[in-house]
């Protein structure tokens, strides 16, 4: 098991290295000049050139990259124009908001985490629950209702569902405040009431996929010989379905869930925009619009870290669920 973990972590590190090189090349090597964008209209060429020098944009790419990576690990000195000393993990200095990128991230990452983690718990419970129930009640009205629900979830768009939820619960019934982010530790009730609509909207859309997937998986597993064996042993139905069938049906759900959650943690632009929350997704989009290269770079890297970590986690879960995976 330890060897398995070390191997997976090693390949995860390699992946992250590749992502960092690629995104660095793409953004820093592109012809777009960030300095022109930063400068007021009456900048003269000498001043622009001086700023470029200060930002290190005239250094060779390799040393720029090395400096950036070193900053993440040990921190570095960015020079007086960029706030001086930048502690690890240093992600550079935002040209636009004039603050350390790590400070921006520290502000917006908790928002995205607060949106995605509870929503993921909700959509997994709802999706797998619906899928399992409709598989066990195949052909009944309950099954049909669940299929209809998941069809709706799969075909509706988040901004539509979000708008309807806002209209009903915030502006008509006035049961909930206008969505906003309050740190969980400051006030858990306001944290939840400000985010619950985003959770519901995400959970509705995502659970659709999970309901279909787990229904199909469960139906397939129920026809497996080992389920018949479990029944022939005299086990009760809850044991047969829960311990024997669901355990085997759940593996593909784990894979998809890992990818979805990992991807969503990198930013949920549409959700954040619909509910007016400032998380990773909106920060990334704003940075792209403003040409704020250090922020773009940081959001891409962090999104990659989440996806890679989610993959490692999925592998570990797989090994925990399926003993046949462990040896490899």
């Amino acid at each position: 098991m330890a060897r398995f973990l070390v191997k997976r972590l090693f390949s995860a590190t390699l992946t992250l290295f590749a992502v960092s090189v690629l995104s660095f090349l793409m953004f820093f090597a592109l012809p777009r000049d960030p300095v022109t964008g930063m400068c007021p209209k009456n900048c003269n060429p000498e001043r622009l050139e001086r700023v470029r020098q200060e930002l290190g944009l005239r250094d060779p790419l390799i040393s720029q990259y090395a400096g950036y990576m070193k900053g993440i690990v040990t921190g570095r000195d960015l020079g007086s124009a960029q706030g001086g000393r930048c502690d690890a993990p240093c992600l550079g200095w935002s040209y636009v908001s004039n603050e350390a990128v790590s400070d921006t991230i520290a502000r917006v990452l908790p928002v995205t985490l607060s949106i995605v983690v509870p929503a993921a718990v909700l959509w997994l419970l709802l999706g797998v629950g619906l899928g399992v129930v409709s598989a066990l009640r195949r052909g009944t009205w309950l099954d049909r209702a669940a299929i209809g629900f998941s069809l709706a979830g799969a075909s509706l768009q988040l901004y539509f569902v979000g708008a309807v939820l806002l209209l009903v619960f915030v502006y008509t019934l006035r049961w909930l405040p206008v969505p906003s982010y309050t740190p969980l530790l400051d006030d858990p009730v306001r944290w939840a009431s400000g985010l619950v609509l985003a959770w519901l909207a995400l959970a509705f859309l995502f659970s659709a996929i999970y309901a279909r997937l787990s229904r199909a998986q469960m139906l397939e597993t129920l026809s497996e010989d080992f389920v018949r064996t479990a029944r022939a042993k005299g086990l009760s139905q809850p044991t047969v379905y829960g311990r024997h069938a669901l355990r085997a049906a759940i593996t593909p759900v784990v894979t998809i869930a890992g990818l979805d959650v990992g991807g969503a943690l990198g930013g949920t632009v549409i959700t954040e925009t619909t509910f007016g929350l400032n998380g990773m997704g909106r920060t990334a989009v704003d940075a792209v619009r403003a040409g704020d290269l250090p922020t773009i770079m940081a959001t891409v890297l962090i999104a990659a870290v989440f996806v890679v970590l989610a993959n490692v986690l999925v592998d570990l879960l797989y090994a925990a669920i399926d003993p046949r995976v462990r040896l490899r």
Partner: peptide
């Protein structure tokens, strides 16, 4: 078929 009749996990 005892391979498919026993639970793999």
């Amino acid at each position: 078929d005892p391979l498919s009749a026993l639970h793999p996990y």
